[in-house]
């Protein structure tokens, strides 16, 4: 590994919009940083906010949840639930001192391959600024 800090980002993407958008970025050969790894769910509505807490515990330096634009959810409402849940967990995590630059949510549609790149770049850049997040890691703690 290089000496430079490379943030590790875990992202939860809905199958229909953001995952497809990320696929489109690939089909279009749009280049973006390799720091972010994707977990596919059918809908952002599936994303339990405690996944975010868990991701930090497991070693993520940043987390992204990305779904369909409001009104475009394949399941009609899932992204609205996701948005509400996310806004709450984000408030809570920031309140206990977790840098909000580590916690992101985005709307990326199936046609927004270029936007997906912008989102990844921003999420990675912000997590890089926030620095390594080892204080919450499960396996780092010995007592």
């Amino acid at each position: 590994m290089s000496e430079k800090f490379e943030p590790n980002i875990v992202a939860f993407l809905c199958n229909w919009c953001s995952y497809a958008g990320a696929d489109l970025a690939g089909t279009s050969r749009i280049q973006y940083p390799a720091n972010l790894k994707i977990i596919r769910v059918m809908c952002t509505g599936r994303v339990n906010p405690l996944f975010i807490v868990n991701a930090f515990q497991q070693g993520a330096d940043g987390v992204l949840v990305s779904g369909c634009h409001p009104g475009d959810c394949h399941y009609m409402e899932g992204n609205y639930y996701a948005r509400r849940r996310f806004s709450l967990i984000r408030e809570l995590l920031e309140y206990i001192g977790i840098d909000p630059r580590r916690i992101h949510m985005s709307w990326v549609s199936a046609s927004e391959g270029a936007k997906w790149k912008d989102v990844v770049e921003k999420v990675v850049a912000e997590a890089r600024e926030a620095g390594p997040f080892d204080q919450f890691r499960r396996n780092k703690i010995n007592w």
Binding site: I39, F51, A55, Q58, A60
Partner: peptide, 17 residues
């Protein structure tokens, strides 16, 4: 897409190499 199936995915991605 059970919690029990997604949490191990998170764990696998979280590991720092």
């Amino acid at each position: 897409f059970k919690d029990s199936q997604i949490l191990p995915q998170i764990a696998a991605l979280g590991v720092k190499q």
